[in-house]
Design a protein around this nucleic acid. Structure first.
Lengths: 337, 337
DNA sequence: CTTGGCACTCGGAAGTATGGAGTGCCAGTA
DNA sequence: TACTGGCACTCCATACTTCCGAGTGCCAAG
């Protein structure tokens, strides 16, 4: 029901509108793209496209702009991801390889992505539950209090203060630490709950309450969703775009940890770039934005997601290319450390 | 040269302008504050105040607004810090006491401060160099690589990946770890460099290169300025205020780590609230903003600073009260853990 | 030193042209 | 049947004008 030329027209409208930020009319279209037909013909096509809901007019006698549905069709069928230039790839590589710990990797990634796309970048820390335990550390910090430190194979360090309520000697702590390490080292975080269930029985009775406290915190740390840390950068890029006035809503949404979590969506396959356009977004206040996201990880394992948020009027092919490239390089960096 | 009434007029102008965001005229002043004199008299006073540079007119025949110099006088001599209400204090206390580790304390603090003042809050992590070593951990993560983890008495955990370039056995790592801990535990970070200088001599020759690598990273971690982490929250509050269009500049400045560092200024005494108004700010792009900051710490020791950034047209007494109160409570929380 | 009166200024709101980009429709052509 | 040129119409932006009123500075009188 949409012949080739109508699709070409839609593509041209999207491209022109993205680059000029002004409603595009039939005359401008035939001028800028050599479509080989007259404006009047294009007008007929546009009428059809509008009837089907792919484009709309801000007001009578203005040019057309794409609707969310129009962008969706464009992304799905009318465009291909644009690979980055050699120079850009090299820049990514050198910039990321200078990182010296996980915080730094994530921090650099988010800034890099923001700069590359000139939009707001969002990066999720590698998921705990999908990583492996490298080491468990238990440090007494005061009487009745110990600090639990978890180190993952991706270099993430998770810390938690534990109230043991009972006096705990240096040796007891050492004992517990050794026990935990032999028990857990190398284990996937997901398997930890099963592995520690019988642990309290292995310690002396007077150590038992403390061990129980440590365990409960340990399990809590693994389960709690809000530990899925997410950071963002490039908020200043929002100011450039004129989001009418929803701009404040967008900023507010970004500062809500919960919203940020949902933003990137559920993990699909690593390396597949997903796009969520305008009203497809679950969150109120992000209805005028689009999110381009991808998973990243080591090998087949997807550890977390990263992406970019911008106006629905965005350069999808370019943004998707940047997101995909950055996701890949981050995976490589993580694999190498 | 400024009699009491002129000062009262300046105070009234600041207060009115802050609450209405409109230039204030002589008539409105006598209406809202019972000054006991006529508008004409006030006009004369205003002419003097303007001549001295405390207020200015946006354009002829408009009301007056305070200049940076005017705000300065207001803060220094015409206002007193406004204590928080009992309810607010209680809210702070309960909100902060729920934190379970340092990241959480800092995160909650910055969000709290942003909400309390409806402005942008900035919090600096407790300085490393002014803390004490609680524990040093060394974890092999791959051949030729170990992870160095520093735990401070304030609960801060610092991690760093180290390239040893040489194979390192489990025992060697254990040995080194024990050595480091006996050497450093309880030491102030500032004293660490002196204490470790002779450490390479205490290990066997084949361990020496690795030990040297660890040491160099350790010292680097202590020295490097950019490790002074700073976070901010409440950027959405900027959108509400009309910063003419410098708004984007402000956001950009906030995302520059370097600027953020300088923002809070040098540590003065703990618990003293400092104010930097408009052009007093070192940074371009923050010339239309004011910063209210205070140090926080445990006892006499100032660990770091926190504060609030907003338009020069801000409620100084209230903001100063909030900053001071939050700084105190954070100190208490840190002391208790 | 303070006050009421007065002429003057100037920004902002509201109203009024005007031009041009764009549309829909229709009749004519290949 | 699909495309095209022509034409009348719509309506947003922009610029220009008008007008009101809050506010000022100055001055002479109290």
């Amino acid at each position: 029901m949409l012949d080739d030329r109508k699709l070409a027209v839609l593509r041209a409208i999207v491209e022109d509108y993205v680059s000029t930020n002004e409603p595009v009319g039939s005359k401008a279209l035939v001028d800028r793209h050599n479509l080989g037909v007259s404006p009047a013909t294009i007008r007929n096509d546009m009428a059809v496209l509008e009837e089907q809901g792919y484009i709309q007019q801000p007001h009578t006698s203005a040019g057309r702009i794409p609707t969310d549905k129009g962008y969706r069709l464009f992304v799905d069928r009318l465009s291909t991801i644009k690979p980055l230039s050699k120079a850009e790839k090299r820049a990514i590589e050198t910039f990321l390889s200078g990182a010296y710990d996980l915080d730094d990797v994530v921090g650099r990634t988010v800034r890099l992505l923001a700069q590359l796309t000139r939009q707001v970048a969002v990066v999720q820390y590698p998921s705990l539950t999908r990583s492996y335990v490298r080491h468990v550390e238990l440090v007494p910090v005061a009487t009745g209090r110990v600090l639990l430190v978890l180190i993952t194979d991706t270099g993430r360090v998770e810390q938690r203060l534990i109230e043991t309520f009972h006096e705990l000697s240096e040796e007891s702590v050492g004992h517990l630490r050794a026990l935990l390490n032999t028990c857990l080292s190398g284990l996937a975080f997901g398997d930890v709950p099963g592995a520690v269930s019988d642990l309290p029985e292995k310690v002396s009775p007077e150590e038992r309450p403390a061990a129980a406290a440590v365990l409960s915190v340990l399990l809590e740390t693994l389960v709690e969703k809000h530990e899925e840390k997410v950071v963002f950068a490039g908020a200043a890029n929002l100011a450039h775009v004129d989001f009418s006035r929803s701009f404040r809503d967008v900023l507010e949404a970004l500062e809500e940890q919960v919203v940020l979590m949902r933003l990137l969506g559920e993990s699909a396959d690593s390396s597949t770039v997903t796009v969520r356009i305008g009203t497809e977004n679950p969150d109120e206040g992000l209805r005028s934005t689009s999110v381009v996201a991808a998973g990243y990880g080591v090998g087949d394992l997807t550890l977390a997601r990263l992406g970019v948020l911008g106006p629905t009027r965005m350069d999808y092919p370019g943004t998707m290319g940047a997101v995909r490239a950055v996701a890949r390089y981050v995976g490589q960096i993580l694999a190498g450390s």
